[in-house]
């Protein structure tokens, strides 16, 4: 039961990183791939109907952690107190910026909020998890820069897939440019993760580390494939590849957290009792399929490429 809930939480976080990952990327790139108000609106309308639903994956992941592993939840967020404050600030200014920009006379502040609010969490989530696993400031910077670049690449591919005209063209160029940063960073970040070469490499994790290196390697592979697919203008497949790279990165992280979700804490110590976990399992089994269906339906409704509207 404990393992099941660990997998569910890893699934929710991975879903969050994939979905909000491209939201962050679009927010990061919006000022660079669009010229003028109409293109800016076109760019942001690709995520308009979905970003808020995507963010609920975070709320659910955190809520599930609180319910299933209270000590992990409270330990993680009280340990990384200030980074989490900054992530929250980012999510606040981004959310308000997105919702308000169509309702103000000059969207300058909203657009600034979207940019900062996309950059902060995209960097800081990577930094927090890298620091948690490898316990070094350098790892945090590298990890954060990697997730920032990964989000930007993921978002650029998403934009290339979801828009047409000039924004689509620029998004493709941005994706290629981003991959120049993302690929080397992926090699550094993921190899240190996979092999546990960080400053505080944990002991007694031999077997899991061996297994843990598989998703990390696969993540590098899919990322390289994504770049090739962007080059060949296969946007749908490229997006699948960046999404897979994001999931695999997240899997690599959680494979290592499985051993020790926090230094000095085991999953069993952190977990709620069997009664609560059983109840949560039933609730999850009943509700999650509905959520997946209607969120999927949203993407289906808005499947058409977003065009310029003057």
């Amino acid at each position: 039961m404990i393992d099941l809930w660990f997998v569910i939480i890893a699934f929710l976080w991975s879903g969050y990183f994939v979905l909000e990952g491209f939201d962050f990327g679009v927010g990061l790139l919006a000022p660079f791939v669009s010229r003028g108000g109409a293109e800016q609106r076109q760019t942001l309308r690709t995520i308009g109907p979905v970003w808020d639903g995507n963010e609920v994956w975070l709320i659910t992941a955190v809520g599930a952690m609180f319910a299933a592993f209270p000590a992990w939840y409270s330990g993680l967020f009280s340990t990384f107190y200030l980074p989490v404050v900054l992530i929250l600030v980012g999510l606040i200014v981004r959310g308000v910026g997105l919702e308000w920009r169509g309702k103000v006379s000059d969207p300058f502040w909203c657009d600034l909020g979207i940019l900062i609010g996309s950059a902060l969490p995209a960097f800081l989530w990577g930094a927090v998890f890298a620091d948690l696993l490898l316990d070094s400031a350098l790892a945090a910077v590298v990890g954060g820069t990697f997730t920032l670049a990964l989000c930007a690449l993921h978002g650029a591919v998403f934009l290339a897939l979801r828009t047409d005209g000039r924004v689509r063209h620029r998004a493709r160029v941005a994706a290629l440019a981003m991959s120049a940063a993302a690929l080397p960073l992926a090699v550094i970040a993921l190899s240190s993760l996979g092999s546990g070469l960080g400053a505080g490499g944990r002991q007694g994790a031999g077997l899991v580390l061996e297994l843990g290196s598989l998703p990390a390697l696969a993540a590098m592979g899919t990322l390289a494939a994504a770049v090739a697919l962007v080059w060949r203008r296969r946007e749908g497949w490229a997006f699948t590849a960046t999404a897979a790279a994001t999931v695999l990165t997240s899997v690599a992280v959680f494979a290592r957290l499985r051993v020790a979700p926090l230094p000095g804490l085991t999953l069993a110590e952190a977990a709620s009792g069997p009664y609560t976990l059983t109840m949560l399992t039933w609730i999850g089994l009943i509700t999650l399929p509905f959520v997946l269906v209607y969120q999927g339906w949203t993407y289906w409704v808005f499947r058409k490429r977003v065009s310029l509207v003057h």
Binding site: V50, G53, P70, A71, Y73, G75, T276, L280
Partner: peptide, 29 residues
């Protein structure tokens, strides 16, 4: 949180799964 999570976390998780997803997804639509 560590003391209450076993009890208190369940309604929070249910809130996200049953209410927040519905609210935000359908509002976007």
């Amino acid at each position: 949180s560590t003391f209450v999570g076993d009890v208190f976390g369940a309604p929070l998780a249910m809130e996200a799964l049953l209410a927040f997803f519905m609210e935000s997804t359908f509002l976007g639509l």
